[in-house]
Amino acid sequence: MTSGVITHIQRFSVHDGPGIRTTVFLKGCQMHCSWCHNPETLRRQPEIQVFPERCIGCRACAAACQHAAHEFNGTAHLYHRQRCVVCGECIETCYAQSMVRVGETRTAESVVAEVLADRPFYQPAGGATISGGEPLLQAEFTCAILEGCRREGIHTAIETNLAWPWTVVEPLVPLVDLLLVDIKIMDDAAHRAWTGVSNERILDNLRRWDALNKDIVIRTPVVVGVNERREQIGAIADFLATLRQVRQYDLLPYHPLGQGKYAALGRGDPPPEFHTPTAAELDTLAAVAARPNYVVKVAGAALRNWRNCHSDPERLDINPTQDTLS
């Protein structure tokens, strides 16, 4: 029975592929993007996040812990992470959810069973997406989940960084309907500096995948100070124009929601704060990114829609002569 470590399974995912999907987030990633807003997915092993603002000072965690990892100074809770073996005893007693376990070991079968719970909603375009972290860090587990979904006739998608030898990627080919991949920066030196890895394998694997006639969605997290210049996005678009299977290119504005997670994980100083591009900047980049062979979206929305959560109702053109029975 193949098993692996996941962070969570999210039902009703509408941004990880088409339709209504269930997204399985695997734990662990071999890249270290400086702006990562999901630091709890970087390490493969289970961890504990601590949110001291939720603590109610009941001291149940200290009573439950066999490793002296919890101490109270008055009402202030001190968590000695270095003593913690992540047994989870404290979490069982923390009803305020001041401590949250991130990462649980699950079998592929149990994950697939959970994916199937929303099968009634997957038609016509939805399904399952394996994400992370980086799914291929647990390649066998990922393939087992995908196989299970395929056996049940569920559409499958994977969000992977593709920064692997092709021999690691190739087993995915018969199991995946849709590939979602980030291209963060075309300049390899810059890519290494910001993410810790080269982009050569990523781009090469993309070319190989493209030759297989399977749909691809490309994403770029747009981070001010990293990759927001027109020539940077233009270079990515130029590369995408050489591929035949790219259906969609998403520009994803960076958001700083992950900052608090670094502290919760005891990761010392969080990374520097990056900035979100402005609406005007994203407009410009979307225009630069446009090519005839794919659709550009910003934050998951088509170009004309994205800025306006409160869209102009006059753009809803209910024209009975076009839309109705004769």
């Binding site: 509408v14 941004h15 088409p18 339709g19 209504i20 909603f121 997957y122 038609q123 016509p124 375009a125 939805g126 659709v295 979206k297 934050a299 998951g300 929305a301 088509a302 829609n305 994205w306 959560c309 869209s311």
Partner: peptide, 12 residues
């Protein structure tokens, strides 16, 4: 509502 799939999503 931003997503192009929004109508299909709600309909599903």
């Amino acid at each position: 509502a931003q997503s192009e799939d929004a109508v299909e999503t709600i309909t599903s």
